[in-house]
């Protein structure tokens, strides 16, 4: 049976889709058969971030409603044979997502894949609650900023009450904190919440810290998951996060402001 992971946040624009794309690609690169599903019915974007927007024929809602089968709707990634994308519908209503419908599709995908990554829409409406309903694990994406932290706290509450695991009195969803757009310089100047502060308020296990990086916009411009930009700090931080998810114990990187001077650059390594 596949492991279902929801990438969620409550607030929009914090990096859910960027994270879903990078995380799914990272799992695929490690050899796991992985599918990433866009739950943002009406505002799909995962296809763009994954760079497969011109290959969308059928979508998630088509599959739920029986207009297409899963195989017809899945888009095979051109870079990694282990990775598939299930796009959201752009025209339908989010009410097309039902507990039974989503459950059936996930069950079918579970026979084929080892990991199912659910890219949640922002907000706490149906798309978001459906994305988390069947989750085994949750990655809560948070910016070090007041509204994002508050919304994440709300989502953590919803995760523990409105999921299949909660309703059926199973072991709860494993929740992990991913802090994105982190800027050590601004933290040092006292302008941004420090990592420890965010962790203290949300009290979740930290799975990664993605530094603010120009590589993220460049990657989405090109439709390439940023994890493939191996030179970039963001790409490396996502690789670390995938490794930690799979059980490796790695120290967190890119947390300090240490600027390499001329000397440092000359004697790099």
């Amino acid at each position: 049976m596949a492991r279902v992971i929801v990438v969620t946040s409550g607030k929009g624009g914090v990096g859910k889709t960027t994270t879903s794309a990078a995380f799914a690609m990272g799992l695929a690169e490690r050899g796991f058969r992985t599918v990433v599903i866009d739950f943002d019915v009406g505002l799909r974007n995962l296809d763009l971030i994954m760079g497969c927007e011109r290959r969308v024929v059928y979508d998630f809602v088509n599959v739920i409603q029986g207009d297409a089968n899963v195989g017809q709707a899945l888009i095979k990634d051109k870079r990694n044979p282990n990775l598939f994308v299930l796009p959201a519908s752009q025209t339908r209503d989010k009410d097309a997502l039902t507990v039974e419908g989503v459950g059936k599709v996930l069950e079918e995908l579970g026979r084929e894949f080892e990991f199912i990554v659910c890219d949640s829409p922002a907000g706490i409406e149906r798309g978001a609650t459906m994305a988390m309903y069947y989750a085994d694990d949750a990655i809560v994406v948070t910016n070090p900023e007041v509204s994002s932290v508050r919304d994440s706290d709300r989502m953590i509450g919803i995760l523990s009450s409105k999921s299949r695991r909660a309703e059926q009195n199973m072991e709860g969803i494993r929740e992990f904190l991913l802090v994105t757009r982190y800027s050590p310089e601004r933290v040092k100047r006292g302008e941004m919440l420090a990592l420890e502060d965010v962790q203290e308020i949300l009290s979740l296990d930290l799975i990664g810290v993605i530094p603010e990086s120009t590589a993220v916009l460049n990657a989405s411009n090109a439709g390439v998951p940023v994890i493939l930009d191996r030179e970039s700090s963001a790409g490396q931080a996502y690789s670390d996060m995938v490794a930690r998810y799979l059980g490796e114990d790695l120290p967190h990187r890119f947390l300090s402001t240490e600027k390499k001077g001329l000397f440092g650059r000359l004697f790099r390594g």
């Binding site: 508050r150 709300r154 502060d197």
Partner: peptide, 17 residues
Amino acid sequence: SAALAKERLQILVAHDR
């Protein structure tokens, strides 16, 4: 301002919960 943000959040989150 980060310290202020933390203080406000702690109060707010406790209230929300």
